[in-house]
Design a protein around this nucleic acid. Structure first.
Lengths: 156, 156
DNA sequence: GCTTGACCTCAACTTTAGTTGAGGTTTTAT
DNA sequence: ATAAAACCTCAACTAAAGTTGAGGTCAAGC
């Protein structure tokens, strides 16, 4: 068993099932990621997928990016912009994570602004087209009608 | 024209096109919202939709909830839990916005935590299964193998 | 040496939040 | 009175991120 484990540990390539287990991602998802160009595989003699262990790191990075809210297509673009087939190094990670952090900060800022508006509007509840910062912030129609008046004085 | 506008302003019901224009939501979306039970309409003699002006406020509330990231199905549930067919009053708004604010705060907290982890991992880049807070925070598999070791020492 | 489990491809289905189009009716404006 | 604009329904399509299943192959253990 020690012998066996030892040789297994040294085996360079992982099967799709092993990758699934180790990464916590379903086999079907790995297939899917492959069709999207997020990861790739070599094939065994019998046409089964074989992965270098570096794929685990790559999947980890994908999952983190997804948590920040970045769509897979964008993740794919970013990953494919890296010098191609070496594994991700610390240097790559630094570049990626810096960008993703910036995105994340933006998203946080937007949500925070929304929350603050919500806070200040809880007691008000006017939802006035013309006055309320929550109401369609980009809506220029608000000026061109009597909408605000009517909304502020709901009938029936 | 003054005469005309005056009578238009007093007209109680809005057509779907008017609601679309005033709310900034497409006609098709209003149809869609209706199928989902988010809004409803009366019909004219000729079967065209007619809305009370209060629908504008309702749509405003829907849009705000969506901005906080709440799925339409949940918005529908919440809205349908209100005493049914009177327009939304300040009191309703207060209740809704309090809940939504809580949701939003949770989402903000999660993203902030992620950002902070990202910040502390930018310089590190280890992505270690066992050590890195970014790595699959819920993944218990990390303990059961040699994954971490291999990931920390990528080959090829 | 054969059974079972893991794997293969490809197509179809799922959910969310809508949009688009076809074919037909109503309302409005001239 | 008629043409144009707005409306109706219903079905099909879109995008993202996968999942499920059918029909068949490969590999490992007893």
């Amino acid at each position: 068993m020690t012998e066996k484990n030892h040789s297994e540990n040294l085996r360079r390539e992982l099967s799709v099932g092993e990758v699934a287990t180790r990464s916590g991602v379903a086999v079907s998802t790995l297939h899917f990621y492959e069709t999207k160009g997020l990861i790739k595989s070599m094939r065994s003699q019998g046409n089964q997928r074989r992965y270098p262990r570096s794929v685990l790191r790559r999947i980890a990075v994908i999952k983190i990016a997804q948590r920040t809210g970045i769509p897979l297509a964008d993740i794919q673009k970013t990953l494919s912009s890296l010098p191609s087939d070496r594994p991700l190094m610390a240097r790559d990670w630094e570049r990626l994570s810096r960008n993703w952090k910036a995105d994340l900060n933006e998203r946080i800022a937007k949500l925070t602004a929304l929350r603050d508006q919500l806070t200040s509007c809880i007691g008000c509840g006017c939802l006035s087209m013309s006055d309320c910062p929550l109401r369609n912030p980009y809506d220029t129609l608000s000026e061109k009608g009597n909408g605000a008046y009517l909304i502020e004085h709901p009938e029936e």
